[in-house]
Every structure is written in structure tokens, then in C-alpha cells.
Amino acid sequence: MKTLTALALSTLMLHAQPLLEPATQAVEEALRLHEVAGAVTLVSQEGEIRHLSSQGAAHLENGTPMREDALFWIASMSKPITAAAVMQQVEAGKLDLDASIDRYLPEFKDLKGPDGQPATITLRQCLTHTSGMKDLEAGEGADLHTLAELTARIGPRPLDFTPGSQWRYCQTSINTAARAVEVASGESFPDYLEKHLFGPLGMRDTTFYPNEEQASRLATSYERQEDGSLRAVPLSFLFGKPVTSHDRYPRGNGGLFSTARDYHRFALMLLGQGELEGHRCLSPESVEAMSSVQTADLQTGFTPGNGWGIGCCVIQHPQGITAALSQGSFGHGGAYGTQVWIDPAKQRVFLLLVQRSNFPNSDGSNLRQAFQNAAAKALE
């Protein structure tokens, strides 16, 4: 069995893949410091994969090395996928970004603002975190099995602020948008995504509910301890159930699992203005809505210089962690450190997949910055 040190400094490649050595070195440093147990990184330019690396361990305790096809909980990287599904239904004329949400979900017809007065919210506000909706309390969703059950529970709750007046990251608003897709399409959200996005794009490993084979490739999640060691931790949203269980609602906000190659195909579709390999998933206008700022001058998170598009963070002023990216780059991070950035100006995609549960700010992690800076410099 390999030692931890050997795992941390090794790169396992299932096939001969292109490497940007500075990018692998940036990850190696994070592995050496036990910031993460392992990582899969991918960088492409003009549709060509220039770097694909699997480093470190998928499971420290039994010495399982990370694989290029390792499955990760991508958490909030699910949000752009949910946004794409909404935009498809907008294009079909079945949803309107600016209509009152109760047109599709009557459970919101008696919605009240923070002052107790009648209020309305829109899908645009749901997808830009400006709706004012309340999130569930910790552990509250354990008994929910469908998106319909979720919206029935949150629909009657008063808003935290007047819609459109603030930006506040909100999980329930994204799940509300996912439920609207179900109502508009007449399909369950998992079935809809498989039929209209994952299947057409060849994303065979992207799912809310991994099968046994996929689960065998799942990278273990770790929490960094005060002594610098890494301790395996469960995925909290599973509430102790196996990852293969269907006994949970399909979280459009952050319930998907995926691989580097799979998510890269979704990113390439967006980079291609909604088209990949002759298959059109979205119109250029829909991609424009996702990748352009919809939040005006509202201050948004989670790092400086950003605005928010439909389901995506948009870089307005590259700085700090986003300095290596062009203005207008867009994407999304995940709670356990995963990240995608799509850079239309330079036709690049950056993908970082890790599973670390307690980054102080996963969107501002040193690993993310080091990887992006190293990869971008190597491409120049």
C-alpha cells in the first residue's frame, strides 16, 4: 500500500493525458500541506483539453489513489445546470423569467413580504439570489422526498427582504426554479435533466442518484483538523443514507454528482453559445442571460468583483482569486471546494474537483487561486 506521503505527491493517470506541470505542482503543494486528500483538475482551451490530472487519494484510509474518472459531489456547481433547464423552458415558451412565480406554483400565491404585505417573486430573482426567500433550517429537509413537498413547505413562509433589493445566497430559491421546470415540462427534474441535457451532451456520470458502479468511484470527503490531519466526513445532505438511495428530493441547488470530463462537456456547451458537437441545448440568448450580470450594482458574494447572472457567478472586475481570468468569465463553485470557470474571451475552461468540507471560504481557497494562476500562466 502506498504511504500517505507517496499518495500526496503522486499523479495517477489512467491514460496518457496532457499535463500543464505548473498546475500539477500547485495541487501537489496543497496535497503536501494536507489541504485536500486528492484532486482532479482539467483545463481546456478552444475546446482542446490541455491538462487533465488526477492526484493524491480518493480514499486515504485504504490507499485508493484518485482516478481521472472519480465521481465528486459537485454541490452548487449544480446551479448552472438548473439554470440551463429553466432557460430551455423559457425558450419553449412554458416559463417566463419575469412572471410571478405563482403562475406556475400556486403555493406562492399568498406570499408575504417582510412587512406582512403581499409580495411576488420571479424566476429571475430566484436564479440570481435576489428573491428574499428563506432557506430551510439545518436538517429540516431530511423528511422531504420531492421538490413539490419542498415548495409546499416554503411557499407560505414570509420573505426576508423585498425581492430585488438585496443579494443573499439562497438554496430554496434555486430548488423553486427546479420545481417550476417540473411543472412546465410535466417531467420529474432528474428525468428532465437526463432527457434534455445529460443524455444529449453525453454526460453519463452526472446524476442525483449514483448507481453502485458510480458510487464505487466516489471521492471521499474530508475535514481538515486543527492538527493538520484529514478526517473522513459524510455528505451532510444525505442524512446518513447511502449515496445510491433515492430517498431524497433532487436538489437543483446542489445535489448532483459528476466527473471532470462530464462537467467539461456542459461547460463546452456554454462556451459554444449553447451548442456542442452539432447538438444545440440552448440558444445564444439564453447563454447570454446566464453569463451576463443581472443584479445591477447589488453587492454579491463570495469574492470581490463579481455580479450574478442566471444561475452563474460573473466576473466583472478580475482580482485576487479571479485575477487569472478575463472580465466576463462565468461559472460556479461548490461547498466542498469544486469550481468551474468558463472564460469566453480566451476560450478556456478551468475545472477543479476536490472534496474538502471545511474550507474557510471554498470560493476563495488558496488551492483554487494557485491552480488557476499556474494553469493560466502555462497557457500563455
Results as ranks from 00 to 15, higher is better:
residue 21 E to A: 15
residue 32 R to Q: 14
residue 153 R to D: 06
residue 374 A to M: 00
residue 105 L to M: 12
residue 48 E to S: 01
residue 66 M to I: 04
residue 244 T to K: 10
residue 10 S to F: 02
residue 225 Q to P: 04
residue 252 G to M: 08
residue 211 N to P: 03
residue 316 Q to I: 01
residue 369 Q to H: 01
residue 258 S to L: 11
residue 257 F to L: 06
residue 366 N to K: 05
residue 159 L to R: 10
residue 366 N to M: 01
residue 351 L to K: 01
residue 91 E to F: 05
residue 255 G to N: 12
residue 255 G to K: 05
residue 65 P to V: 13
residue 295 T to L: 07
residue 272 G to I: 03
residue 234 P to T: 13
residue 30 A to T: 10
residue 26 A to M: 14
residue 295 T to V: 15
residue 158 P to Q: 10
residue 209 Y to H: 07
residue 112 K to L: 15
residue 61 E to M: 04
residue 244 T to F: 03
residue 15 H to T: 12
residue 137 E to T: 09
residue 220 T to K: 14
residue 98 D to H: 14
residue 307 G to M: 10
residue 146 T to I: 09
residue 221 S to L: 13
residue 139 G to K: 10
residue 58 A to L: 12
residue 372 Q to W: 00
residue 109 K to W: 12
residue 331 G to Q: 05
residue 40 V to T: 13
residue 57 A to F: 05
residue 53 S to W: 00
residue 106 P to N: 10
residue 212 E to S: 14
residue 70 A to L: 03
residue 52 L to N: 00
residue 174 I to E: 04
residue 18 P to C: 09
residue 312 C to R: 03
residue 264 H to Y: 09
residue 275 E to P: 01
residue 322 T to I: 02
residue 164 G to T: 10
residue 159 L to A: 11
residue 27 V to S: 04
residue 13 M to S: 15
residue 307 G to L: 05
residue 172 T to K: 09
residue 163 P to Q: 09
residue 229 S to L: 11
residue 31 L to T: 10
residue 101 I to V: 15
residue 28 E to L: 10
